[in-house]
Structures are given as C-alpha cells and as structure tokens.
Design a protein around this nucleic acid. Structure first.
Lengths: 123, 123
DNA sequence: GTAATACTCAAGTCCATGCTTGACTATTCC
DNA sequence: GGAATAGTCAAGCATGGACTTGAGTATTAC
C-alpha cells in the first residue's frame, strides 16, 4: 500500500538538519525563499536545493507569484512516514514474548535504565 | 523535551534502505549477525556496521552469548521519531487558515489532485 | 591442542550529497 | 528603458558514509 520510495524520499529529506529547521520554520507560517535563506549562513542556491528536496517528497508546497516564491507546509506531508512507523511499531510490540524481560529491565527498581547487562559491549 | 540528536541518529539510521530491511527482518523475530548478513549480498563487516548504527540509536538491541550475537527489535525504539512527527503534525494542521483553499484543491471534484495551479514548476 | 566458526576492528576506496560560485532569467521599481 | 530584486541553473569541490579487504580475537568442536 505504502510507496516504499516515498518513505525513502521523506526520510532522505528529513535526515538533513537544515531541512528539518526549514520545516520547523514553515510550521510557524509561510515564508519566501529569501526569508528562509536569511537565518542560515548559507547561499540562496543551497537553500533552494533544500526546498526542492522538501517539495519533491511532498513535505512542503511552494507557489511563485511575480518574482517571489512563497513556501508553506504541506499538511499531510508527514502522514506516509507516520503510517510507516505505526505499521512497524505494532508487530514489534507483538514480539514481547521474549522481550518482556528486557522491558522489565527498564523498571525504576533497576538503577541502570538501559544498556547494562550486556555481557559484551566493546570487545 | 525531545533530544534533537536522538531524532537525528534515528533518521540517519532509517534513511539507509539496508538498515530498514534489517529492521523489518527483525520484526519477524530475533536473528544472529550471520543470519542477518546472509540475505544481503554483502560482507559480514558491512552488516555489522549497520547493526551498530541501529543499536546506537536504540532501534535494536543485541546480546552476545558465546560467539554468537543475537539481535532483536527494541520495542520502543521508534517512539521518539513517532513523537517528533506527532508534534510537528499538530501545528502544521493548525495553519489551515490560509491552507483551507489548498486543501480544497485536493477534492475529488478537482480532477488534478495535486501540483497543478502552480504558475511555475520548472522555469 | 588444533581447526573451524562467528564475529570484530581498522584502513582504504568510492560515490552520493551539501554547498559554493558564477552566469542567467524574470519581475518590479524608477 | 535601465537598475535592482528575487530566484534559478549548472558545474565543481569536499565531505561523509557505505562497503570492502584483510588481519585479529574469542568460542566451540574434534
């Protein structure tokens, strides 16, 4: 059902911190390319490339009026990734047969919350 | 609240298709390093590096018994990313003031579901 | 003990991607 | 019309990360 390459392009877009920042900026409202470029110590062209990546995978939408391009969040853009995660969390939570004990280790009564009783960790 | 670098490492881990496949494999149950390496036409060492990336960001957990390392899904591993997405979807959906019209364009009555009335798109 | 197995580590290669530069186009202001 | 503004494109550099190779270690089988 889910387009695998869609997930791929969304993840590739989100993995870049600059693009995540652009996305956060746009959640506070639309912005032009120059407004988006300004806070980053980065050229216009670089920001433009990020915007193209974000738009290509449907995370943002842009519209050019006159010589000004205005970008805004695409509301459903993160939905495919959210769905992908949801689909993978359910089966994972089903494998609690053997994992019950591991979950139990994260209890407050255990002073070391995670990553402890591995009898290995670095040679 | 959310550790930004945690999101970063999870995204970096998930962006690699091989690591996503390993993750999917592990949702069907635990596996040893060699079992994981076998289906991929890839060396042991390469798979090991993927496993280390997955484990470093908390998506999987592994335990070495004797000479065999067994890997399994870490149930809550995707939670931070799921939360991150959830936090960003809500505010995005609040910007519907101006976006209402855009959403309306995706109605069935509009024959071109998306990406249409841009008066630009490629020069 | 010796050999085989199952990994582990470090170094090196190679390619994808982020960013820059510089030239170019389309709009708006005067 | 000419200059300034806002963005676009293409080429090239540089870095990071995936993968390999080859050597090394710990564990198990004989």
């Amino acid at each position: 059902m889910l387009d695998y390459s869609e997930i791929d392009s969304i993840l590739r877009a989100l993995v870049e911190p600059t693009r995540r920042q652009i996305l956060e900026r746009l959640t506070r409202g639309p912005a032009t390319v120059s407004q988006l470029a300004e806070p980053f110590g980065m050229t216009f062209a670089a920001v433009l490339q990020h915007l193209q990546a974000l738009e290509a995978c449907g995370l943002i939408r842009s519209e050019k009026i006159g010589r000004v391009r205005t970008c805004r969040i695409e509301p459903g853009g993160l939905a495919p990734l959210a769905d992908w995660i949801a689909e993978r969390r359910i089966p994972a939570e089903r494998h609690l047969d053997r994992l019950g004990q591991i979950l139990a280790e994260t209890d407050p009564k255990d002073q070391s919350p995670k990553k402890n009783q591995d009898k290995d960790q670095k040679q």
